Structures are given as structure tokens and as C-alpha cells.
Simulated assay, not measured.
Amino acid sequence: MMDELELLKKDWQKKGAELPKLSFDEIQNMLWKKSSSIVRWILIISVLEISLPQLLFLFPSIRNSMALLDNSTFNLGLLILSIFYYAVVVYFIYLFYKRYREISVLENAKTLMDKIILTRKTAFYYIIFSLSMFFVFFLYYALEMYFVDDVLMSIDGFEEVLKKRTLEEIRTMVFWGVILGGFFFTLVMGGIYFLLYGILLRKLKKNYQELKRLEI
């Protein structure tokens, strides 16, 4: 039995010797290309993320539901929040583009490692900001529902519910309903974010670890 194992080992070593061996520069070049491709995908996903929701307004039902919220105070606050959100997201997209351009220009392994760390930090901050803003939008909507009667009354079936419950009860129910809805929506989006971006960031981390190992 031992003789057979030794023969198998020798046969494998013989075959391994015949396989092409990659040089340090070739491995580094492969990791650079993989890293550049990953950052490009992060950039593409972030652009799609800010663009695709706008297509929802092509549907009449979405436009009609937004038209119900015809309150100047509500719309002004929503506009301010939206401008802030999109301005910051556009800035993050610019940073992702900048990281992609920086990584696309190969200098050395140390520089590439630094850019990978910077890209991972940028993506992490982007995820935290986006998830925070999702909940802020729901919180703002809930507060408007509670304090502005015009917004509350725009809900379908409000008149029927008012016959059974007081206005204060409806306000409280709607407020906490929106808060809970926003919390679960943020959790779901967090799962999607950490799944989608997480896969890409883990690949970047793996590339970083490979580069670090090569540098030792």
C-alpha cells in the first residue's frame, strides 16, 4: 500500500513540474486586472441603483400615489431630502469612478493594496449612508403622517377608518406602521447590499491578502 502511495506522489510531482509556473509579475498582473474588474462592477451597480428607481415613475400607479401627497410642506421637505441623498450618492459614484481609474493604472503591488483598502472603505461608507437614508425617508414620512392632517387624510380608506377610531389613534397606528415598515425595508435592503456588494468586497479582500502574501 505504501509503495502505491509513493508512486502516486511521484507521479503527481512529475506532472506538477510540467505545469507552467506563474512569475511574481504575472500573478500581480492577474490580481490587478481582477481588482480593476471588481471596482468597475461596484461602479456599474451604484449607477444602476440610482438610475433604475427613476423608471418607476413611468408607471401610472406610482405617479398617482405620489400625486395624493399633494402637500406643499411635505413635498418641500421630501425635495430637500432627495437633493441631499442624490448629491451624496453622485459623490460616491464619482469616488468609485476615481478608484476604478486609479486601480486601472498599475504602478506596484503596494499602491494597489492601498487602493483596494481605500475602495473597500468607500464602499462600506456608501452602504451605511444609503441604508441610513432609506430609514430617514420612512421616518420623515411617518412624522408627516402624524403631524400633518392633509398627508394623513390622503391615505385610501381614511374616512372609513375615522368612523371606527379617533384621529389620534389613526395617527399613532400609521406612525408606527410606517416606522416598522421602514425598519424591515431597511433590513431587507441591508441584506441585498451586503450580499451584492459583500461578494465584490470579499473578492477585493482576497486579492489584497494575495498581494500581501506576495509582498512578504
Rank of each mutant, 00 (worst) to 15 (best):
L56F: 14
L52D: 09
I199H: 02
T122M: 06
F57Q: 05
A142F: 04
V88Q: 03
W12K: 14
Y140Q: 01
D70H: 07
L79N: 12
L167G: 01
V174H: 00
V105K: 10
D70P: 04
F158R: 01
F175W: 04
V174P: 00
L43H: 10
R99E: 09
L48Y: 13
L112K: 04
I199K: 07
Q13S: 15
G181L: 09
K33P: 03
M113D: 12
L204H: 02
K164Q: 15
F175R: 00
K115Y: 12
W12C: 11
E144Y: 08
L195P: 05
K206N: 12
K10G: 14
L5A: 11
F185L: 10
I80N: 02
S46Q: 14
V105R: 13
D25R: 10
G198P: 04
E215I: 10
N71M: 03
N29F: 14
S36G: 09
S37L: 14
F84D: 00
L131Q: 11
G157Q: 03
P60H: 03
I128H: 02
S46Y: 05
E144D: 09
G157R: 04
M2A: 12
T186D: 08
P53N: 09
S65N: 13
Y86S: 02
S104K: 11
V47H: 00
A67K: 03
V178S: 01
E215D: 15
I93F: 00
D114N: 12
L56R: 09
K33I: 09
L58E: 04
I170L: 11
K163N: 12
F74I: 03
L19R: 10
A17S: 13
K212V: 04
G177N: 07
I128S: 06
L48E: 13
G182H: 00
K163S: 14
L211A: 06
D149Q: 11
N71T: 02
I192Y: 10
L5R: 05
D114G: 10
A17Q: 10
I50H: 02
E169K: 08
T166W: 08
Y140C: 06
N108I: 11
L52V: 15
L106W: 13
L95P: 02
I42S: 11
L78C: 04
I27F: 10
V174Q: 06
Y85P: 02
L55W: 13
L81P: 06
K33F: 12
L162K: 09
L5P: 00
Y97C: 03
V88P: 00
P60M: 05
T73Y: 09
T119D: 09
A109N: 11
L204A: 07
